[in-house]
């Protein structure tokens, strides 16, 4: 089973990289762009056929390593 993990900064946490991207888009004349937020995307293969068990495992991975839950949220998609 493949896990697709999206990690984003929590709302309210300043994202200077997102701000810089926003500025660069504006300098390329893309108007009407707001609230750019940059995140991470991680893909992994997991040796598990049961979706519930796989979800629990990937959740634990996110909690323990992949995301910093002080500042980041994560979403897991199993396919």
């Amino acid at each position: 089973m493949k896990a697709k993990i999206k990690i984003t900064l929590k709302r309210g946490v300043l994202d200077p990289q997102g701000k810089a991207i926003e500025g660069a888009l504006a300098s390329l004349s893309f108007t009407g762009v707001d609230n750019v937020r940059q995140g991470k995307y991680i893909e992994l293969e997991i040796d598990e056929t049961d979706k519930t068990k796989a979800k629990a495992k990937v959740d634990a991975m996110c909690q323990k390593l992949l995301a910093n839950t002080v500042i980041e949220n994560y979403e897991v998609d199993l396919v």
């Binding site: 946490v13 300043l14 200077p16 990289q17 810089a20 910093n68 002080v70 500042i71």
Partner: peptide, 11 residues
């Protein structure tokens, strides 16, 4: 220790 250390605000 608590908290987090993030990218410098001025990048």
């Amino acid at each position: 220790l608590p908290g987090a250390l993030m990218r410098n605000a001025n990048l």
